[in-house]
Design a protein around this nucleic acid. Sequence first.
RNA 1: GCGGGAGUGGCGGAACUGGCAGACGCGCAAGACUUAGGAUCUUGUGGCCGAAAGGCCGUGGGGGUUCGAGUCCCUCCUUCCGCACCA
Length: 856
Amino acid sequence: MAEQTTTGAGDTGATGYDPQKVEAKWQNRWAEARVFETEADPSKPKYYVLEMLPYPSGTMHMGHMRNYAIGDVVARVKRMRGFNVLHPMGWDAFGLPAENAAIKNNTHPRVWTNNNIAQFQRVLRRFGFSYDWRREISTCEPEYYRWNQWFFLRMLEKGLAYRKNSRVNWCPKCCTVLANEQVVNGGFCWRHEDTRVEAREIEQWFLKTTAYSDQLLDDLKQLEGGWPERVILMQQNWIGKSQGAKVKFGVADAAGAGPIEIFTTRIDTIYGATAIILAPAHPLLAKLLAGSSARADAEPKLAKMRQTSVKTEDLATLEKEGFFTGRYAINPFNEQRIPIWVGNFVLMEYGTGAIMAVPAHDARDLEFCRKYKLPVRVVIQPLEGEELIAEKMTEPFDEHTQGKLVNSGPFNGLSPVEAIAKMAAFAEQKGFGQAETIYRLRDWGISRQRYWGTPIPVIYCPKDGMVAVPDKDLPVLLPPNPKLTGEGESPLAGTAEFVNTTCPKCGGAARRETDTMDTFVDSSWYFYRYCDPHNDKAPFESAKVAYWFESAGAGPAGIDQYIGGITHAILHLLYSRFWCKVMRDLGLVRHDEPIARLFTQGMVQKGGVAMSKSRGNVVGAEEMAQKYGADTGRLYTLFAAPPEKDLEWSEESIEGSWRFLNRVYRLIERHASAVRGLKDANVGAAAASLKEKTLLRKVHQTLRRVTSDFETRWHFNSAIALIMEVTNDIYAQEPLEQGVRPEVRKEVLELLTLMLAPMTPHLAEELWEMMGHTEGLWKTGWPAFNQELAREDEVEIVVQVGGRVRGRVKVTAGAGEEEVVKLALADAGVAHHADGKRIVKKVFVRDKLLNLVVAG
RNA sequence: GCGGGAGUGGCGGAACUGGCAGACGCGCAAGACUUAGGAUCUUGUGGCCGAAAGGCCGUGGGGGUUCGAGUCCCUCCUUCCGCACCA
């Protein structure tokens, strides 16, 4: 950066534009005038625009910046449009990196976090984003996390928070649970790369997201149009509703074991079942194996299966393996004995942990049965094509939309769809099964054996058992000086002054819960807290939330525009939706969905990969502001790519944005004195010269298109292109002194400035002031374009012969077909191709095109 | 395997409901101004043929609909992302 002397903002030679000075000046003015501070005001339509809150770690780079630049354009446009805009910012301040950094640097997570927050905040202020900083929140502060605890207690009361054993990744060296992301190289600990992660059962806290499975799925309909389709689809898949049936198979010869319940979506194929396959962790397995001849062989195989990592990607590539238990199940439909196997691919967590294998009609079952030489039985024959022969099948016939049942007793001849309904009803009538819907969605495990998170407000008393911390004792504070080693159990468990407490019920000695909450809890409801950030009686006042979320603004209830990366398409957004529904059922809010409109912006990349500290490819936002100024940085991130697409950072291209802003500055600087003394331009002023007409027409046409690009299409890049174009056109009319009256110059230059204002607000304010305004631009509304001035009175019509462009003719706007055809035929290029040929058809599009279709 | 995007000059990208492909910017080239230019301004810049006028080709490949297709339909290819032994 030091050798950078002659380009960029360091060069003051050719222009008076000094972004450092201009930006500091206007940031101060805005702060003094409290321009961005908002209060709920029912007399004005509201607009809530929000960017996902950052995790303050590392350096703030242009990837972050792009997110906020997009949000800020929206906030500023809406403000200019007269909306009461809520645009807050805060910090996702709890989390593992803080804890690890603290261990490494021998400091406290709070110190590390607050340093980062200070730095992030400085950079955001440097970019002039229009936040109401009075509403800033930091999730690691007790004033915030006490409400996490409060919500947890409400969920505990409603049975939505509970404890159960669950299977987790366990590192025997760390003696702690690892998140899936911390399992590396196909099953090893990230901190001990020679140590294989084990699957373990430990007690954890869960939130019952599954209680809302149907609502989370059904309410996605409310989001159609407001959310990207792919996010809706991803959530749909994640919830994974599956309609099928459960059927109980009796067990032959094994005293006390059974029945085994299986789940299937294809009960119509049940006569083709040739085995039952259990998950290795199936609870009936022990009883089945007891006394079985297969027991000795089974033990080592089971041990191997159980030890395998629970990381899902690994499961997918795992070789299918299984073994016979030595036992048989009885198919309740036909009393047939089929062997019971164990398969490493059967998941205990999904369905019932047991499946029926129908090799003729399921790919995975066929693979398994061929490998272990289990029989194949065809029970559905296709209506068309060759008859299936079990012995020859190399591919399953898994269509359910066609075919008819065979070898299926009384159900023969039915279509699979009919059979699914009839057989489920039959099973229910006979008492061995029923139709059932299951979900892939699981409850949300929130326990973390970490320090830097919200303590779970629960106490264990030897006498009273688990006792909730009473509301009046909230917040349960994190102890200030924990021993952080990154090893052993939860750091809180090793901090005596935290653990040892008294039971709220009996007053006797008791122990606190030592796990903390997943940090996704923090971000599940933070956007409500912005509405009432300093409330110490409740998470928020419902009336305030009602104004910002529920009063008629730009659309349906919820945040009017939420902006963030696609990476959060599932977890954060699903948890937030869940939280909203819980809050609604607690009577705190009245809406079903927290986010009305979602925009997923692309990432900023360098070298084809997302910017990140570990890759060493970050472009620091602060350096960018120092070199070119915030406005250039903002403009460039908006210009270089459409907001939803990834943007490859180019150090060369940003020069173009810098040059453009200088160009605008010079233009207005040149005419400022001529324009300064004038009253507000008369927008309707008729043009007196061709030059005036050209300029006014162009600028109003541009305004029309920029308005739609900003508001409805979000094409910021093409809006900027249009503004650049109009700037070039103004330059082309220089010297404006000749033939353009000052009031027309004022009109044109002011509109140019106002169009730039949402993107380069500091420069726009400066130019506005240079043109003689004593009141800030922030008080000015978005200009309306003048239809009359924008109108073209002469248009160029493209003339095609046989669909190929052969000429152009200029006509008065609205000219009729006959006139255009006459002119077209007089055009040399057109005549050359059309003369002597018969015109069989004329296609005429008014003011646009004429296509003469010729014969031969 | 399932689901969803994306494919346009040397590069980033425009092209709204089918109607001049390549706007705007970067880069590159030439010129003006200048002691100088990496500042600024002007001009040019998809490919091929041609001195020029002009012509032909051209939006991943192939096919189709249409007076007319980057845009609609079919098909194939490439690539990115999400989920993934989901019963």
